[in-house]
Each structure stands twice: as structure tokens, then as C-alpha cells.
Simulated scan of single mutants.
Amino acid sequence: MLNIADVLHRWCRAARPFALATVVDVTGSTPLPIGTSVAVDEDGNAVGSISGGCVEGAVYELCRQVLRDGGAPQRAWFGYSDDDAFAVGLTCGGELDVLVQRIDPIRHPHLTFAFAEVADGRPVGVAQVVDGPEDVVGAMLSIVDDRVHGNAGSGPSSRAVADQAHALLRSGRTARVAIGGQADDCPQSLTVLVHVHAARPRLLIFGAVDFAASLSQVGHFLGYRVTVCDARPVFATAVPYADEVVVDWPHRYLEHTEVDDRTAMCVLTHDAKFDIPLLRLALDLPVGYVGAMGSRRTHQERLRLLTEAGLTQDRLMRLRSPIGLDLGARTPEETAVSITAEIIAHTNLGTGLPLSSTSGPIHRPAVREGAVMK
């Protein structure tokens, strides 16, 4: 639902009821992940998509029905149908489990606050009960600034749901989790979908060279918070699309800045006096991606110097160098696409090969953005 938080915030502020259809489970190849939603208000206005167009009409009608009838949330399943070319189904061959429920903003005031925080770019978690006792399915609570708003069932159940929401918000990922069944902490067995809007992942670009501006632009487009760092004041001037430009020695800046396993680092300087201290530190940090620019000869020399500096082979294997995928890139703009394509493939366990030369599902189960791959 957080994919359409800006519109939902406006509807909530206007106290406008709406039906919310949310993908709560997927099987096989599906175009959009769990947590994606469509919403329809009482005037028939719709926002969002859950299938890229395959089943939107059927979901829209179900939303209209739920708004008219009220009552308990409704469940719908959509899979591939080859009996009729015009049957409702997913042409990609996957299966969607969709929960549709009526949302009355007056009864869920915490959602107005949560959607506003998402629209402002702040971290938010919203837990939605998608399986369990009938009187609990559809219940929601939200986590903003480590505070719990709303409830999801009885006291012990709601606390257990809140604990899961806190944990997933800290890890920055949306997930479906099963909880409960133990009399001590949560007697009810529940399945909860925790929607997470995390702070933007970081893209750290070291070296304010001509490639940095293009890489900043593509990184910004992909949703990264972009930092460019260079020790040379004459080069570390304003960089288009960068959120900040830092004048400092790269390794010294990295020692004191905040990173996590969604962080991508691109070293563009190919100058040993900057690169070796920086990479020696970076390859020991739990960041998602570390790439370095340079020729193959530069790469071999870099490996030699890093080995002499004490890095083990398993650490060196984390280094993506020469940086980027083989796209035949020549210009800074093409090189930026090459680099970010490798970051995307690395993050999502993609092969980097043309889809026409591979088999199996096109849409894979979601992998947490920036997760460190061993």
C-alpha cells in the first residue's frame, strides 16, 4: 500500500473511505511484489496497479463491491487461464493472492499519519493482518519513530505484530511473516504482511571525475541518496543530482559515515593513493556493493596492493572490478548505465544476461535491495 501513499494520504485527510486491494502472497512469475496495492474511492477513482494490467479490471470491480457492501475483507486469487483468451488471469503464468478491505480513515487515524510520513520520505512500517481469525483479518498498526500506532488484535497479539514490524522496519524490507500460536506471547495464529518504507539506500561515489555526474543522475533516478566524495577541492564542486558533495580523503570519510547492507559504493578515481586505503576499509564493511573503475592492468595491480595490505581472498572476491557490465559503454552516460545495471543484477541475484538467452521466470522473488551477497 505504501506504493500509493501520497494519494492515500490525500484521501485520508479528506476522510474519504476507500477499498484497498493488496497483494498478500505470490507464486511463480508475477510482475509486482507482495505489498503492492490498488485503491478505489467511493467516487470510482482508482490509483495503483497490482499486475501491470492483467487483472486490474476484476480487482477494480471487487473493490467497488467491497465499498458498497462493507463487512469483512474479501479474498481473491488470480492465476493463469488458458481456457479463454479473454479470461481474467496472469499472462505471465504466476499467481496472486489479493486481500480487499474497506478503509475508513476515521476508524484508522494512524494511517493518515503513516502515509504523511511516507510522502515526506521518512521510514515507516505498516503491519496488516492477512490471515487469522475473521475479526482480526485486515487489522493494521503502524510504526513511526519507533512508536506504535493502532492495534492488530488483542493485547498479546498486537504486541507480537508490533515486534515483527519493528524488526522488519529496522532491516528495511517488506515481508510476510507467521506469528503466534503460543499461549504465552500470542495465542492467536496470524499471518502478517509488514509494509516497509525505508530511508533511501545510499550510493557513495568516490572521485568527482567526469563519470560522477552521469552516475549521480542514474543513481538519483533509481532512488538512491547520492554522495560524491573527493579529496581534491578543485574537483569536489557541485555535482548535478548528488544530494551532497564532500571534500575529504575517501577512507577518512568512509570511517565516519553511515552505511548498511543496501549501500552501493563506486570508486572512480583509479588512483592507488586514494583507492587502496578506501577499498581496504570498504571490503571489510557490510555494504551491498563495492565496485572500482580502471583497466584490467589497474585491477591486477590493485589486487596485488590490497593483498599486501592484508586483505584475504574472500574479501577481495567482493570487489567488482573493472566496474560495470559489458555493454560496450563508451560515454559517461553509457558507463553510468553499465555500472548501475551491475548493481541491480548483483542486488537481485540477476545473471546480467539477455532474457532471450535464459529460461525460467522473468520475475523472481524479491531480494532485499542492496543485500550483501557472499
Score class of each variant (00 low, 15 high):
154 S>V: 02
233 P>S: 01
80 Y>I: 00
37 S>R: 00
112 T>L: 09
339 I>A: 09
350 G>P: 00
372 V>N: 02
94 G>I: 00
249 W>H: 05
274 F>L: 15
210 D>C: 08
183 A>G: 03
101 Q>M: 05
262 R>H: 15
167 A>F: 10
154 S>M: 13
58 A>G: 01
276 I>G: 07
24 V>H: 12
14 A>T: 05
11 W>I: 03
369 E>T: 07
139 A>G: 12
130 V>A: 14
203 L>P: 13
112 T>M: 09
316 L>Q: 11
176 R>P: 09
348 N>V: 08
16 R>G: 02
110 H>N: 05
359 S>D: 14
163 D>K: 03
126 V>F: 13
98 V>W: 05
198 A>N: 05
72 A>E: 11
271 D>C: 11
162 A>L: 04
122 R>M: 12
165 A>Q: 09
40 V>H: 06
108 H>N: 09
330 R>C: 03
220 H>P: 05
48 G>T: 01
245 V>Q: 02
100 V>T: 11
87 A>W: 08
228 V>S: 14
278 L>N: 12
201 P>C: 05
374 K>M: 07
193 L>D: 01
260 D>W: 14
276 I>C: 15
55 V>P: 04
301 E>Y: 08
116 A>C: 08
28 G>H: 02
63 C>K: 03
248 D>G: 09
277 P>C: 09
18 F>K: 07
148 V>S: 14
58 A>F: 00
119 A>G: 12
31 P>R: 10
313 Q>M: 13
75 R>L: 06
203 L>Q: 12
193 L>A: 02
300 Q>T: 08
152 A>M: 07
15 A>D: 15
245 V>I: 04
269 T>Q: 15
223 G>V: 02
182 Q>I: 04
196 V>N: 15
196 V>R: 14
26 V>E: 00
54 C>A: 06
286 P>H: 03
326 D>N: 12
337 V>K: 02
7 V>S: 14
87 A>V: 03
152 A>G: 10
